[in-house]
Design a protein around this nucleic acid. Structure first.
Length: 865
RNA sequence: GCGGGCGUGGCGGAAUUGGUAGACGCAAGGGACUUAAAAUCCCUCAGGCCGAAAGGCCUGUGCCGGUUCGAUCCCGGCCGCCCGCACCA
């Protein structure tokens, strides 16, 4: 028989489907034995790519393992179906985004099914379906009632050609990624979700996520960015009064607020700096052409990475001074400075050049005093000076009046206390985290269900009117938001007063859609509410979530926020949606360019011996580039569909799991695929031989049979542990090692002998999560009627895990000199004796008596000479 | 700049976390079968040295040092690569 993956795989996929083998119960029978495994659902972009194959293979291995281990498993799949590409496609092809999206879903569903995933397809949904987004609108209204959704003016990236707001990621070097037009900053009324309401909880919750990668927790921690410090007010000095404002009718504030994390360094302050966007800066500039000019220059400065990195610290004196809060009579000059951000803290800082690198750079440039006030350990207060580097580290405070002698931490507290006594400030916390702007001026998204009425203001859409659906007859040929330009859609009567009003034409950011889909999967067809309480409480949290690291912050933070917001609106009762998280690496491939520098697909390239390559048709030279993440733009992609067609799903899955640890990048190579296929063929051939009628040969020797049995049970223990710790590459290696033993045994004693068949049966069970089709086929060939995936996971027999005879290493002074075989029961004395009896050991000792002998039972004997 | 991670054969990577470094695979080389090729099977495969062979010796987990009977693993200092954040006060 030739191994024919197509027929084998189709056969078993049909059987699984007919028997509804993967349907999860509405509520798991036992809370302790439930397992919710989720891979991040795909955006239906057209066809599946290798990243999907890897992601879903990893998830499926876990799902199948947990099922075999007796859990009620929930393993669903759906579609993150809203998004700009659908709209762009509609614009280009003259179709409707929905048509494009649903078409893609149909294709990709077929491709995923062809992978043989153990998914409960009865729970499938797409976020663009009104049956889904009506519940999202309900959640939005609940959030709005709670004050967790609100509308406010905000600065946004505005693409003047596409007439839409762009996310930060869609602005490349200051230009819209699609139109190429320079992006404008615009202040627009936008909808926000109040993520900052949970800043503390989102931060503290990270500590409970023991089964998340430390890296992701750290990234979120940094993103939330909690800073403990003080808000303090610097009074404008009295002598400023005459110049404060030329207009007698307007008086500015009499103090400038500043946020600092270092109140301990206040005695080292030598200037104040305001952001050029600070309201005071604007006010002062009204009568000061120099200030106005500086502000204009700063505003014109680019915001691209390179520009910020190389931007010189620049500032301009305002002519004003403020009083030092602790030093009577001392004043500090006030500057505008280009490095002070309006978006963070109070938009103003006090500069302490001795202990902050940026302040030092600024002070050196404008000849401001550098006063050290923190003395590093071991430095002499008389001679300590600041050179090119500020001292941001720890030490004792000096030159600082009442703070002298305190440590940095003590001084922070003492200084804050003093500010509070003086009424000049208080301890506060600053967050880097901002509220989440969810408004998008796009058609293909979930409509935000509110109505604007001139008389009543913002009026939520009545719940009985949900869903607020998208109009089918939108015009995509015009620029701008099709909802805005639609002739009638937005015109509705005000639900409150009945007068003419208009619908909100913004739709939700697609990250909103994916912020609660995992909860919807628990009761995907529930009509009364977004989630059925009984189902979410039984299934959530997700026990294992699998996806790419690129979502480490945005999606995973939003989902954590959403879960808390849903909790506080009474939809569920937990804070953390994902108990375990696994972030997989990317799939990479070499990239190729022809002589003209154009990218080439791998199938257009023929590799020549010695590393060179040429064009498969023209024969022209091809430059082989380094291996990098597969991407359409570089054409270094391999279509999973074609691989599955020629090698089968098991082969694609095996390749995905072999060699590279799943958290690391994986390089796709043709040779690797061939290697995986070779293994499958060998195992299939072995199964065929094993299933052949028993010949009359002599039964295998009992000793060899026992050895094979021991190997089988060691493999059970090893593979189980490997799978549970996501070391899938090691599990594969172990299965190959074990199968090599079976091949050897079969060659010597017959493949259809009882020990060989027993071993093969264990191999099939252990293979099942990774190579489900072939495993089922083998199981059937060995004469079983049952479905392998319903069989319990094998248990290792402890009695078979330990050998009777062990091999110990013998070292002399830590160097390996011999190995000895001893009965497991042998004691220290026996081990020492046997070690010293070794010829090579005697030689290494060179006649000297050993000084000391260390015996680690079962492992090693080290003789110190 | 700040934070985090990682350096093991020609390559991907193992090593039950202080106890025989290089499992398993890829590539490569040699051989068998074949008219030939493919497929398949067998052997070699960290480097160096000695030996006809059996075998033996030395070096080796980025570099330097330390702790230890023993270090890929722990500690200190360098070097290199990758990722995240980035004028966050």
């Amino acid at each position: 028989m030739v191994y024919d993956p197509q027929s084998v795989e189709e056969k078993w996929q049909r059987v699984w489907e007919e028997r509804k083998a993967f349907a999860a119960p509405g509520v798991p029978p036992s809370a302790s034995k439930k397992y919710y495994i989720l891979s991040m659902f795909p955006y239906p972009s057209g066809r599946i790519h290798m990243g999907h194959v890897r992601n879903y293979t990893l998830g499926d291995v876990v799902a199948r393992l947990k099922r075999a281990q007796g859990h009620a498993v929930l393993h669903p799949m759906g579609w993150d179906a809203f998004g700009l590409p659908a709209e762009n496609a509609a614009r280009l092809a003259g179709t409707h985004p929905g048509q494009w999206t649903w078409g893609n879903i149909a294709v990709m569903r077929g491709e995923l099914k062809r992978m043989g995933l153990s998914i409960d397809w009865s729970r499938e949904f797409a976020t663009c379906d009104p049956a889904y987004y009506r519940h999202q609108q309900k959640l939005f209204l609940d959030f709005y009632k709670k004050g967790l959704a609100f509308r406010a003016d905000a600065w946004v990236n505005w693409d003047p050609v596409d007439q839409t707001v762009l996310a930060n990621e869609q602005v490349i070097e200051g230009r819209g990624w699609r139109s190429g037009a320079p992006v404008e900053k615009r202040k627009l009324a936008q909808w926000f979700l109040k993520t900052t309401a949970y800043a503390d909880e989102l931060l503290d919750g990270l500590a409970t996520l023991a089964r998340w990668p430390g890296k992701v927790r750290l990234m979120q921690e940094n993103w939330i960015g909690k800073s403990q410090g003080a808000a303090l007010r610097f009074r404008l000095s009295a002598q400023n009064a005459p110049v404060m404002s030329a207009s007698p009718h307007r008086r500015g504030p009499d103090a400038i607020e500043v946020f600092t994390t270092r109140p301990d360094t206040l005695f080292g302050a030598s200037f104040l700096a305001l952001s050029p966007e600070h309201p005071l800066a604007k006010e002062w500039a009204e009568n000061d052409e120099k200030l106005a000019g500086f502000i204009r220059e700063c505003a014109a400065g680019g915001t691209s990475l390179a520009e910020i990195e190389t931007a010189e610290k620049r500032g301009i004196g305002t002519g004003r001074t403020v009083d030092h809060p602790f030093i009577p009579g001392k004043t500090l000059p006030v500057y505008l400075a280009n490095f002070v951000l309006m978006e963070y803290g109070a938009g103003a800082i006090f500069g302490c050049p001795a202990h902050d690198a940026r302040d030092l750079e600024f002070a050196r440039k404008y000849n401001l005093p550098v006063i050290p006030v923190v003395l590093p350990d071991g430095e002499d207060p008389e001679s300590f000076t600041i050179g090119d580097e500020a001292h941001a580290g720890p030490g004792r405070v000096f030159n600082s009046g009442f703070l002298d002698g305190l440590t940095v931490d003590e001084a922070k507290k003492a200084a804050t206390r003093k500010l509070e006594e003086l009424g000049l400030g208080e301890g506060t916390v600053q967050w880097r985290l901002r509220d989440w702007g969810i408004s998008r001026q796009r058609y293909w998204g979930c409509p935000i269900p509110v109505i604007h009425c001139e008389a009543c203001g913002i009026v939520p859409a009545p719940e009985k009117d949900l869903p607020v659906t998208l109009p089918e007859d939108a015009d995509f040929t015009r620029p701008g938001n099709p909802l805005e330009t639609h002739p009638t859609w937005k015109n509705v009567p005000c639900p409150r007063c009945g007068r003419d009003a208009r619908r909100e034409t913004d739709t939700c950011d697609t990250f909103v859609d994916s912020s609660w889909y995992f909860a919807r999967f628990c009761s995907p067809h529930n009509e009364a509410a977004p989630v059925a309480r009984e189902a979410v409480e039984a299934w959530l949290p997700v026990d294992q979530y699998v996806g790419g690291v690129e979502h480490a912050i945005l999606h995973l933070l939003y989902a954590r926020f959403f879960t808390r917001a849903m909790r506080d609106c009474g939809h569920l009762n937990l804070a953390e949606p994902f108990a375990g998280l696994f972030t997989q690496g990317m799939v990479c491939h070499e990239s190729y360019k022809d002589a003209a520098g154009a990218w080439l697909y791998p199938e257009e390239v023929e590799k020549l011996p010695g590393g060179a390559a040429r064009h498969v048709k023209t024969g022209g030279p091809v430059t082989v580039g380094r291996s990098e993440t597969m991407s359409k733009s570089k054409k270094n992609v391999v279509d999973p569909g074609r691989i599955i067609e020629s090698y089968g799903a098991d082969c694609a899955r095996l390749f995905m799991l072999s060699d590279s640890p799943p958290e690391r990048d994986l390089e796709w190579t043709d040779a690797g695929v061939d290697g995986a296929f070779r293994f499958l063929k060998r195992v299939a051939k072995l199964a065929e031989d094993a299933a052949a009628p028993q010949d009359a040969a002599a039964p295998p020797p009992a000793e060899a049979a026992l050895e094979l049995r021991r190997a089988a049970h060691k493999t059970i223990a090893g593979v189980t542990a490997d799978l549970e710790r996501f070391a899938f590459n090691v599990a594969v290696a172990r299965l190959r090692e074990f199968s090599n033993l079976i091949f050897d045994f079969a060659a010597k004693h017959g493949a259809s002998s009882a020990p060989a068949r027993d071993a093969l049966e264990i191999l099939a069970r252990l293979m099942q999560p990774m190579l489900p089709h072939l495993a089922h086929e083998i199981w059937e060939m060995l004469g079983h009627d049952s479905l392998l995936l319903n069989e319990p996971w094998p248990e290792a027999d402890p009695a078979l895990l330990a050998d009777d005879t062990l091999t110990l290493a013998v070292q002399v002074n830590g160097k390996l000199r011999a190995t000895i075989r001893l009965p497991r029961a042998a004691g220290r004395d026996a081990a020492e004796k046997a070690a010293l009896a070794e010829e090579s050991v005697r030689r290494a000792l060179g006649g000297n008596a050993p000084k000391k002998i260390i015996v680690v039972p079962g492992k090693i004997v080290n003789i110190v000479a």
